[in-house]
Simulated scan of single mutants.
Amino acid sequence: MTREAPPAPTRERIRQVAADLYVLRGHDGFSFGDVAAAIGTTRANIHHHYGNKHRLMAELLDGFAGDAEARIMQHWARPGVPFAQRFHLQREDLRRFYHHFNRQPGDRNVWSPLSRLRLDMPVLGEAAMVALERVNRSYETCLKQALAEAVAVGSFSPEIAAEDVVGLLRGTFLSCGPMTQDSGSFAEVERVLGALERMLNAAWGRGPAQDR
């Protein structure tokens, strides 16, 4: 008989629930009372662990940026992963976030923590800008590395416009959230990413498609 995983410690559970509420509702759309009700504790307990909402948000922002950096490195900076597989990993990662926050067909909820940070920049100020800049730098660095490796193994031509491609990929990946809110479906993201991948292969691809 397999044992059920033990519940997360209270502080971590608070952070997880607060992160979800923040992405769905924004800074002004949730309170410590909402978090307490969701996990079955008291507001006093939330204050015990995080003090105030400013401290909670500071930890959430750092967590969003750190998590995004780790996932970007996993998708785009691991050596030896074919470029097509990197694209697949990125797409499925986005899909996972989308379905976590959009459980019913046609839902148009915000699902990207980074999209929510942009919306809340007037409230969060420099803290949001710092978090977003961290993610932008990570994409820039890791995408450049992935393209350089793809060129080195012969998947793309050395003539590829690397700086332009990096900017196009980064901007597209970071814009997937609004696409699904417009259409009410992840299919729009799939369509855009598929078209982008096909264009890159048509312009600079070499060798069998599965190796790109």
Rank of each mutant, 00 (worst) to 15 (best):
M1H: 10
T2H: 11
E4T: 12
R13I: 04
V17P: 09
D20C: 02
V23R: 01
G26N: 09
D28N: 13
G29H: 05
S31N: 04
S31G: 11
F32G: 06
D34Y: 09
V35D: 03
A36W: 11
A36V: 10
A37K: 13
A38W: 10
T42N: 12
R43V: 11
N45I: 09
Y50S: 08
G51N: 00
G51T: 05
G51S: 05
L61K: 00
A65G: 01
G66C: 04
G66F: 02
H75L: 01
A84F: 01
Q85T: 14
Q85K: 06
F87C: 10
E92D: 10
Y98F: 14
H99V: 07
R108E: 02
R108Y: 02
S115C: 07
R118F: 00
M121G: 00
A128K: 06
V130G: 04
V135P: 08
T141E: 05
L143C: 06
Q145K: 14
E149F: 00
E149L: 08
V151F: 02
F156R: 08
P158W: 02
P158K: 00
E159D: 15
I160A: 15
E163W: 08
V165P: 03
G167W: 13
R170D: 10
S175F: 10
P178D: 12
P178Q: 05
G184T: 01
A187K: 08
A195T: 02
E197N: 00
M199K: 02
R206F: 05
R206C: 12
